[in-house]
Design a protein around this nucleic acid. Structure first.
Lengths: 127, 127, 127, 127
DNA sequence: GTGGTCTAGACCACT
DNA sequence: GTGGTCTAGACCACC
């Protein structure tokens, strides 16, 4: 279900977070779905349980999952706490940064916009 | 000329790189312009000289600047080595990632596309 | 009668204990009232019987309830064993802690005192 | 500076967090003060560096401290992100809980209010 | 069985 | 030297 690239510079716990968030956003994981236990996932992707735990804790802080003691961990209804200006600013700054990199890599503006279009459309699935 | 945010999680040497690249792309810095020496810049922005040096080295490797011994450091004509598939893929992956974050932050697709538009249009200046 | 929040970080057995203690303190449960058996309650609030059992054991240790074999479990007259310095110290430490949290949450001193007033006044009922 | 009770049920990392928050609130630690490095503090209070690190990371998330890579960790201006309804509700729930415990421990309402008064007045110092 | 906490020790990026 | 990440392995509370 999850694929980890141990050689990536992106920390493993971040990879876990992002992939779960993506699967939730795409509707592959739905509210009340149970996700693997820390131990299950850690042995499945061959990673230390603490690393998985760290990812789960952060997902819980973000309100994507809830853990119920002794029962497991579940996808929860995502309700943005508030319109987080901070998060929005961060996204904008990062877009600015990437556009610059794309520019140096010789990527056309339209291509980048298409990518945004494309990836955005894959999200929001609630099937 | 450069503004460093010491509290940011973005490494200082990256901030230097990005700001210089941005100024070049926007036409604020032009080919053959001289940029400050490592020592000048490091004392100006109150940063360890090694940090500035690291940034300059990477900019030189990317072909943005060139140092001429005894004369200083200058902006050079930017010629992408080749159509770097790796760089392009990297940009695409990052866009995918950011779109996900933007989605969770409740940002509309069109808004993100506008940002791409906006930031891209600021580049390419050769005035 | 009892409402359990499975997602709360407060252990379920603690939730049971607290709610019963609260109902006793408010006079909703009175001396000699019978409370549900472990099995009844566990099936009613959909919780593992061991969890209910653990709560009842602790309540019995505290002298809030008493089980009579074959007859059921009953509210008993509450007689504090002794003026438990330990318990008092614990409460004081916790108040100190909460005041700190309230301070960071921007809550006025008077508001917190009002809450103490309000919740305290709800107790002590023996109607 | 910090005193850790290894036998307490309160996790060590929480004790660190609370004591630092308290010292900031009381004005003992002031904005831009440098706090010990992870390694320093960990050897000083004889605790694993990871434990200290965990505490520092959470304090950073709460906006109490900032860490500057390679330079150390500093107290920062505390600006509540927004009036966090969630945090306020949490404090209220906890007060309700403690009042109940205080009631069973035989503590008078006025005493508890005095404690709130007393501890609150120790905070807010900016000397 | 579940996750939460802690230790010991290693490696890496940044300054 | 600074913190961030990860591993391996232990213990505990909760269900």
């Amino acid at each position: 279900m999850l694929t980890i690239d141990a050689r990536s510079t992106e920390p493993i716990y971040r990879q876990i977070i992002n992939q779960i968030k993506e699967q939730v956003a795409r509707g592959i994981l739905k509210v009340d779905d149970r996700i693997p236990t820390v131990r299950e996932l850690s042995s499945q992707i061959v990673v230390n349980p603490n690393t998985v735990s760290k990812a789960y804790q952060q997902l819980e802080r973000e309100g994507i999952i809830v853990t119920m003691r002794g029962r497991g961990t579940f996808i929860t209804e995502y309700i943005p706490d508030e319109i987080s200006t901070k998060a929005i600013e961060q996204v904008r700054t990062q877009i600015k940064q990437i556009v610059l990199e794309g520019y140096y890599a010789g990527i056309e503006k339209e291509v980048m916009q298409d990518w945004v279009e494309c990836y955005y459309n894959q999200l929001g699935g609630k099937s």
